[in-house]
Nucleic acid binder design. Structure first.
Lengths: 152, 152, 152, 152
DNA sequence: TTTT
DNA sequence: TTTT
């Protein structure tokens, strides 16, 4: 009886940060920019464009796709949910970080643009990921994963 | 070339905070809860339900509807965009707050549940808002608003 | 590199049609109404409200939830994708039907409204479905389903 | 109390059909393809990819942008609503056509790909539309349009 | 820190 | 701070 859904299209701000946990689960983090267009209000006030930065978090198969194909500048479609984490800073103050946990990702733009991820563009490793079951997102992924004791 | 869209269904955490700016523009703020269901992982780990709180911001016509019909506990559909504001706290540290700027809102549940907002349920003030032009969301609203020099 | 996503909130037009296939897979079909609000154009023309009917199709766990809890009049959130099927009518003309294949469903409104599904509201069968793994939607469902040779 | 929302990312099937009504309102129609990925079920059945064709309808400012920048093959983000029209064919049978009425559109891919629409890429006609007020989508558009007596 |  |  609850829905928490985010849909973003934007550009990746820097190469993803990739980590593998002890259980071999992959996690990717990167910033994604969306930009509102500039416009002029009816009263004639000019509103400049405004960029919003989103902290994207990917798990498992989607994180592995990010490792292979996502780079600074990549245009992405991201579908996921909002999650705000709290943490305590060095001054012992509770602070909050809002992140987007992705459960779907699509690489946009044409195939031959998505190179740039040079180490992966090899003959038997198509530049455009096929995203078939073994590397797919959370759905199929969770079905393939015998060890899955993480809280997300 | 950018999309920043959020879709939420949840329950309002407390009565909206309503303000009228000098130019008579109405602004409403309230927290909305969405709750992930509890589940058990394939490894048998129990994950409890988790509630996410979203800071909702409404402007103009939508804020006025909130003033009339939204109360603590109301179930709402919200469509909007993510916006992170930065501010400087008393320790002079830059902090960030993520908010949802709504551009569409729907009151869910059946008509006669949406009472509770007792002061407005008067005879010529139907409990279920008709949401026709004068009080509608951003679209019609912007068309009706001669003074509109705010940056959103 | 493709997205096909539909989000609907509306009311069920009649009790779901439930079928079980030979392999015991459950399928549910029902119409869902969404209604555009009436409004007046800037030129003063009155546009009446307009109801759109959507053919909803649910599979497996979601269909079983529909069997238990969805009835004529139920207010639902549906997330899914558009699919147009062609078929040949008795005059041998190819015709098309557009359906919404749901991959998420939420029952809206308050708990005690969702009764009406009288046969299921028994003591050990909570009216509000818990939607935990065994009866959940496509995600977990596909993980639990050893026989799964259907084309969706 | 109703939501009817569609989000599509796909490729345009052929150059848009552009018409101007008597009141100078522009309407654009074109097919958009979204393609589900091929996959293999847990039972080992291969499901081929499947393409879905959507009939996109744009009005006013969005239709004019389509006239200038959208061509066969263009990758687009479309946000809109589902609408099913009925009509009577030559055999006097009522038939139905489902269309997507767009209220937002974004051209995807990088700037220099979006040429192809060669006749419009002239010096004072930037290839990447700025989409500022005068040519924007339904929102601002309705604000700028003094004659607006159409039923959408 | 992206992109236009 | 909601709701189930």
């Amino acid at each position: 009886m609850s829905v928490n859904k985010v849909i973003l299209i934007g550009n990746v701000g820097k190469d993803p940060d990739i980590r593998y946990l002890d259980n071999n689960v992959c996690v990717a983090n990167f910033p994604l920019a969306t930009t509102d267009r500039a416009y002029t209000t009816r009263a004639g006030v000019q509103i400049p464009e405004k960029t919003e930065w989103h902290n994207i978090v990917l798990w498992r198969g989607l994180a592995e796709i990010a490792e292979k194909y996502v780079r600074k500048g990549t245009q992405l479609y991201i579908e996921g949910k909002i999650r705000t984490r709290s943490w305590v800073d060095q001054s012992n103050i509770t602070r909050y970080t809002t992140e987007i946990y992705a459960d779907n990702m699509e690489l946009l733009g044409r195939k031959n643009e998505q190179i740039g991820a040079s180490p992966v563009s090899q003959i038997d490793n198509p530049v455009q990921p096929s995203l078939t079951s073994p590397v797919q997102g959370s759905n199929v992924d969770s079905g393939n994963n015998d060890i899955d004791d993480l809280p997300f």
